[in-house]
């Protein structure tokens, strides 16, 4: 009987040790892992605090921040003010329209896109020429083109709005056919595609002109030479 007890206890210890051997093969975090984890934890708290701070702001304060971020060329989806305002149902469309009219250039892009998102009727009330000017001025002055997306892959709100502006955007887009400045997109796979295609401002202009002109399924060729040939034709 005693031997059986000893045996059972030994077995128990063996099983426990075997199980915990797996634990030992998962060693404590290294200094590097601890550093990364600590940095990320602090940053997650800070990001949550920022969202909370914006959530606590009233609409007037948020609209002021929105304009600030618009003038700094923040993408609409990366603007904390846009993110917060988008969720609200009590944003005064009149105030937003006034902000758009007072910032009738690239700096008015975020208020314009927010208006389109929140109150399409009020958005359509903004003259198409004004919408077209804000959108094409933003395109002409952008450093990164994430707010427009990647033609042939996906389009973002600024691209949809440009297409909706239609013929009102056409004269400015035709001028941009001469703009061969690089039009990069940041990201992960997005940046790789952007590097591969090497889109320029003129390529975006060509794409919008073709779609506005009725070629809804138009695809930009991958080769810049082929795109240049199409640009030449479109500029005539």
């Amino acid at each position: 009987m005693k031997n059986r007890r000893i045996l059972s206890t030994a077995l128990l210890l063996l099983i426990a040790a075997a199980g915990c051997a797996r634990r030992q093969s998962n060693p404590p975090l290294t200094d590097d892992q601890n550093k990364a984890k600590g940095t990320m934890d602090a940053q997650m708290q800070a990001a949550a605090q920022t969202a909370s701070d914006y959530h606590a702001m009233d609409n007037a304060a948020l609209l002021s921040k929105l304009l600030e971020q618009s003038q700094a060329q923040t993408e609409y989806f990366n603007s904390p003010a846009y993110r917060e305002l988008k969720t609200r149902t009590n944003v005064d469309a009149t105030a937003l329209v006034a902000q758009v009219k007072a910032n009738n250039n690239a700096g008015g892009l975020l208020p314009l896109l927010l208006l389109r998102q929140l109150d399409n009727q009020a958005y359509q009330g903004v003259p198409a020429e004004m919408r077209g000017h804000i959108l094409t001025d933003a395109l002409a002055n952008a450093k990164y083109f994430n707010s427009w997306g990647l033609p042939d892959f996906y389009l973002e709100d600024a691209a949809h709005a440009t297409i909706e502006a239609g013929k009102a955007a056409t004269p400015a887009l035709k001028r941009l056919l001469a703009d061969t400045r690089p039009a990069p997109v940041f990201g992960s796979q997005e940046a790789m595609i952007s590097n591969q295609y090497k889109y320029r401002v003129c390529d975006y202009a060509l794409f919008f002109l073709k779609v506005i002109g009725g070629q809804e399924n138009f695809r930009l060729p991958e080769s810049p030479e082929e795109r240049d040939a199409l640009i030449k034709q479109a500029a005539r």
């Binding site: 940053q43 800070a46 990001a47 605090q49 920022t50 969202a51 993408e75 609409y76 989806f77 990366n78 904390p80 993110r83 994430n146 997306g149 996906y154 973002e156 709100d157 997109v185 940041f186 990201g187 992960s188 997005e190 940046a191």
Partner: peptide, 12 residues
């Protein structure tokens, strides 16, 4: 800005 960044609208 102490915020998360995204390359596009979709992941949010």
């Amino acid at each position: 800005t102490h915020t998360n960044l995204y390359a596009s609208d979709q992941p949010q």
